[in-house]
Design a protein around this nucleic acid. Sequence first.
RNA 1: GGCGCGUUCGUCUAGCGGCCUAGGACACUGCCCUCUCAAGGCAGAGACCACGGGUUCGAAUCCCGUACGCGCUACCA
Length: 499
Amino acid sequence: MSGTVRVRIAPSPTGPLHIGTARTALFNALYARRHGGTYIVRVEDTDTARSTTAFEADILEGLRWLGLEGDEGVVVGGERGTHGPYRQSARTTRYAEVARQLLDAGKAYHCFCTPEALEAERAAREAAKLPPRYSNRCRSIAPGEAATRRAAGEPAALRFRIPDGPVVIDDLVRGRVEIDAATLGGDLVILRADGSPLYHFTVVVDDVDMGITHVIRGEDHLSNTPKHILLFEALGAPLPRFAHLPLILNADRTKMSKRKSQTALADYRAEGFIQEALINFLALLGWSTGSEDEVLSVGELEGRFDLDHVQRGGAVFDRARLEWLNGQWIRRLEPADLAARLRPFYDAAAADGRLGRPAGDGEIAALLPLIRERIQLLSAAVELTDFLFVAAPAVDPALLVPKRWDAATALAALEAARPILERGIGEGDPLLLEAEDPTEAALRGLAEERGWKAGDLFMALRVAVTGRTATPPLFDSMRLLGRAATLARLDAAAARLRG
RNA sequence: GGCGCGUUCGUCUAGCGGCCUAGGACACUGCCCUCUCAAGGCAGAGACCACGGGUUCGAAUCCCGUACGCGCUACCA
């Protein structure tokens, strides 16, 4: 039996939670849960210029919303676990300590090259059509001399000595990948001249300290993995297993980017995508169960997840498919749950004026059955039912007259229907969904009597009452609206037809 | 430029030598249901499995090459 699985997701708070980060987090969490392991959230904020606490909060909050809060690591409001600190900005002394070990062991050295000198070197190589690569020229500076220059105050970065030879990655997704260390670009800077540590170094130190057993991340890191492997070896640490996931792609098949796609998780949430659908969708982006099942809960995903079925080619983010899944999951929610998730959308609409007044809890509960089957996004519920919460809907007179009719017919229809509705629609009637409806029957009788298509009559009434041609079922809508409002809208529409 | 990875319907994918004249899902089209819109049901169109060579009695599945695409190539992460 191998040791307990420990995996991690290491977001960098230089932007809001990215859909790709969420997917990587999910795969790590699924892997950990499947194997009874531990899933860790580590914040990689060594780039102090671009990292912000606001982004960190967005990321942690987003992960929590997805149900992907770490078992260990940084969580909303703090940290948990015994391998911390889990924020790289709090680990600088540790990095300095490990860097010192490398220096003392002769595996790292001070580099006095100035940024300008490095830039010139790079330009020269490019002009000569050679791949960019550091010359390793400071390797030859004797340790004593380096110490003297350092003591004199000359700034120096610390470079890790890249050994010669091939590096083999035994990837759980891609198999054996061999890369020659000579193509890695020369000795690697691990500490900037100001002493701050760089990414490739911190990841490895952290993965070692945190006992990471499996590194599951995007394919964009595959080319950098040899650097990490060499660092693990230099530190005398056991190698974790690596698994590189296919990239999530823009429609043009380039790596998904903010520029070409909607990448912020929070934006999807704000649109009314729900957590269950996002999880389901993301899990199936680059992985499959090997079966034909498509709608899967996180529990089912946990039970089935494995790295064997991870796809190797990149996967285009298909929003239409996400929307379909969202509709599937909305329909699977318990009514009370759906109502609670709808609440903020109605509140927001009331606040910004899209609705004339706030929606009551009872009202949302009542309209649930009308919209449940009709929305793919939570936000769409508001548009479908806004007629219930406005004083008077804006009615386009042209829509009031069904195609086969003229204005006079429409007016006659509204007038004839009025007494039937006045009798049939009460204030606060319960819905009649699926049941035998005497009001509907009466109106059908009226239509037959006058030689109208019932559908035309209903459409005229629909537009008069809601202002729209696509709405939830007409009679249930009118009952929810109530008798007074229904009749008032009928009268208003009739007045427009007369005028 | 160098190095690496990848390539099955528009998209997500099943497939791990014969069950494939390639299956499912989304999207699309039509029909049914129906007061509109949905949801649901049924049907259809859609992939010569990137291309070219091998290996094999037999290849989408194994090997080699080519093309194309993507990623990486910082004192960013």
